[in-house]
């Protein structure tokens, strides 16, 4: 054994951590930074909704003496036809939208990613078959699929999530497939085989981490589109039913009073728009920050 103290050569030089590098690049895009904070704020609100508000009294408890008050200091978003404060209901609604959006995206990822990755890695007949099936599903308007599934299987939140996730699975699968195909033909995969790496470690070490970069972006965008789908179905009366303050359901509830009390539809609409916009901007920012090839 050597007696002198040995220093790791890599310790002698600074290294920007992966997270630091990521943040450095993400923060270049100011829109994406704002979007991130918006998403975090809404996410926090969604997580704490039940701590802040009491569901039975503040959210669904009605008081007809307070009904249809236009936006004012006490009720910034006004009150609905049952006298419930719209601000409270819209804020509480974040919980449903986020839950549905996230679970849909998670479902798409869990189902779509492995299928797409396998199709991309092995190619051939399996690839052809799987992608044609997703093409067929993709050719049906997603709202129509949602309506069909909910109409056939019933009016439950779990079923709603599945109904919305179906078209998304194909989208995540094709993104994963493309990512894996691109990476599989890269020379660094051959290079890893040339030094004697077995298939499984190779996939785990080189294919998956590089593919995740690309897939994470699509999953983020999937959250946004799931929120829109859920709201659309709720608006049509097929999603989360009233009195639950889901944003689409709020829109639906305000619809009949839109001529006289347009604020009832305006604010839930704005909530959907801001959330989805923020998610999309965040997705764009992530895409730019996660791709090591796009410098500066």
């Amino acid at each position: 054994m050597k007696s002198e103290k040995r220093v790791l050569p890599s310790r002698q030089y600074s290294k920007r951590s992966r997270l630091g590098e990521f943040w450095h690049r993400y923060s270049q895009n100011k829109g994406a930074v704002i979007a991130l904070f918006v998403v975090l704020a809404i996410g926090l609100l969604a997580a704490l909704a039940d701590v802040i508000y009491d569901y039975d009294t503040q959210i669904i408890g009605y008081d007809l003496t307070q009904k249809l008050i236009k936006p004012c200091a006490e009720h910034p978003f006004g009150t609905d036809d049952l006298g419930r404060d719209m601000l409270t209901r819209v804020l509480y609604g974040a919980k449903y939208s986020f839950m549905i959006g996230l679970s849909c995206a998670a479902l798409c990822f869990v189902v779509g990613m492995p299928i797409g990755a396998l199709a991309g890695y092995y190619g051939g007949t399996f690839d052809l078959l799987v992608m044609r099936i997703f093409d067929i599903i993709g050719s049906i308007p997603s709202l129509l699929i949602g309506i069909m599934v909910v109409a056939a299987l019933g009016h439950k939140t779990g079923i709603l999530i599945v109904a919305i996730a179906i078209p998304g699975v194909g989208s995540i699968a094709s993104a994963s497939r493309m990512a894996v195909m691109t990476i599989r033909s890269s020379e660094y995969i051959e290079s890893a085989r040339a030094i004697g790496m077995k298939t499984f470690p190779l996939v785990m070490k080189h294919v998956v981490p590089n593919a995740l970069n690309l897939i994470v972006v699509r999953v983020t965008l999937q959250v946004g589109s799931a929120i829109i789908s859920a709201s659309s179905l709720s608006y049509l009366g097929l999603g989360v039913p009233l009195p639950t303050p889901e944003w689409g359901a709020l829109l639906s509830g305000g619809r009949k009073l839109i001529r006289t009390h347009s604020y009832l539809t305006l604010f839930p609409g704005l909530a959907i728009m801001i959330t989805v916009l923020a998610l999309n901007l965040m997705g764009d920012g992530l895409r730019d920050a996660l791709d090591p090839k796009l410098k500066k």
Partner: peptide, 28 residues
């Protein structure tokens, strides 16, 4: 061994120089 044509695609973009060069040493 082999040296590849395109040095832009023959290195894993997520590996540092240390990781890339030491990988064959560690692996074998």
């Amino acid at each position: 061994q082999i040296i590849f044509q395109d040095p832009f695609s023959s290195l894993d973009p997520r590996q540092t120089v240390l990781q890339a060069i030491s990988e064959p040493i560690r692996l074998n």
